[in-house]
């Protein structure tokens, strides 16, 4: 009975080299592919809130006592309060724009805790203006802080006691759109703050949003999309002294 014969097919050396090269290339291809595309393989976005703190640019003290000047040099107490307000509003902007736990869900309860009772309902009603927005989680894949400006004005009474304060703020953040590209989130305006039992809370606000697609650097002016402008958009005069 003839024994079964096994036929061994041999490739030429050239063919073997080509196959080996193709396999190596295939592996390289797979490795490259893994690093750049595919679900679960997207570049990792940190779940941490980015570092952000306002720095006080200027403090203006407006006295109310008879005989006092229009404005006086900011005192150490004014500066202390200004620094405190900067901390409070930094906390607000972190909660409203930068904390992924908030913007990914579109809920900003921790931000609204910084408003006093009277201002909270209007603040919540204006969530789209005061925060990254309810749909930020689907619109953006990342939000990082940009430059900011922070000026404080205090109204002072007898012996320089601070009666109330306001902060003129400009905040910018660069948001990465899930659809591709960037958007600069721009929040500008005034917050009024009142000291209630040792804590400063926002009791008033007048805020504009001037978001723009693209990466806007400081001072850059964007062309408008159409001529539409909200009725109450305001032309801010930020230099009180110049107008005096």
């Amino acid at each position: 009975m003839p024994s079964p014969t096994t036929t061994v097919r041999r490739f030429s050396p050239i063919t073997t080299t080509v196959i080996a090269l193709a396999l190596v290339l295939g592996l390289v291809l797979a490795a490259c592919n893994k690093g750049t595309t595919g679900e679960g393989n997207a570049p990792e976005v940190s779940e941490e809130t980015p570092e952000f703190d306002f720095t006080v640019d200027k403090v203006t003290d407006t006295p109310t006592q008879p005989g006092a000047a229009l404005t006086v040099k900011a005192t150490a107490e004014d500066q202390k309060v200004a620094d405190h307000l900067a901390k409070q509003l930094s906390l607000f902007y972190k909660s409203a724009f930068l904390d992924p736990a908030n913007w990914k869900d579109g809920t900003y309860e921790s931000a609204f805790e910084l408003f006093d009772q009277g201002a909270t309902p209007d603040a919540k009603a204006n969530v789209e203006v005061l925060t990254a927005g309810k749909s930020a989680g689907t619109t953006y894949s990342d939000i990082q802080p940009g430059f900011s400006h922070f000026n404080v004005r205090v109204l002072t009474g007898e012996k320089g006691r601070i009666l109330t304060a306001s902060a003129l703020v400009e905040f910018r953040a660069l948001a990465t759109l899930t659809a591709g590209g960037d958007r600069t989130l721009i929040s500008k305006g005034t917050y009024f703050l009142n000291n209630v039992e040792g804590g400063w809370f926002i009791n008033g606000f007048d805020i504009d949003r001037e978001d723009a697609d693209g990466n806007a650097s400081e001072g850059e002016t964007a062309p408008k999309q159409g001529d539409e402008k909200p009725k109450d958009t305001k032309d801010k005069n930020t230099d009180e002294e110049a107008a005096a």
Binding site: G118, D122, A123, D182, F192, D206, D213, A222, T233
Partner: peptide, 19 residues
């Protein structure tokens, strides 16, 4: 390079509350 997007305002909005 990231896709070049022109810097274009996408709309203005305003919110206010006074005590």
């Amino acid at each position: 390079a990231a896709p070049s997007t022109p810097f274009l305002k996408i709309g203005l909005a305003h919110a206010e509350h006074v005590p």
